[in-house]
Amino acid sequence: MKNRIVVGAHYGLKDWLAQRITAVVMATYTIMILAAVMGGATRSQEAWRSFMSHGFIRFVTFIFIISLCYHAWVGIRDIWMDYVKPTGVRLSLHVLTLLALIGYAGWAIQIIWRL
């Protein structure tokens, strides 16, 4: 028992990496949108609508939404794991977080795709 390697299975490595990749995706998207806004994408509601309905913007916005939800899932799950000890409560919070994020993702994608 003494020499048991508890980290031998790379627990959490995948999520650790995903957290970083999604962060870079979101940061890039943010800078892109900020540049577009400074370039006048929000000067009128029509301009904003036509900007967001552009095929490429729709594509990257979809990736942004998925990245955000994955990133938020890992982050919020870590908060529950750090502060909530009773298994039942923790499991419920995990499930609620997941369901909420899946719902938000569907809602946001539907907004973009209906344009």
Binding site: W48, M52, A72, I76, I79, Y104, A108
Partner: peptide, 25 residues
């Protein structure tokens, strides 16, 4: 970093709602 992340998560519905309203036809 944790507090801000949690806040952003909690207010996500508000942000999606605002996005929806801003893009309404």
């Amino acid at each position: 970093h944790r507090v801000s992340g949690a806040g952003l998560f909690l207010m996500l519905p508000l942000l999606v709602w605002l996005l929806q309203l801003s893009l309404g036809s």
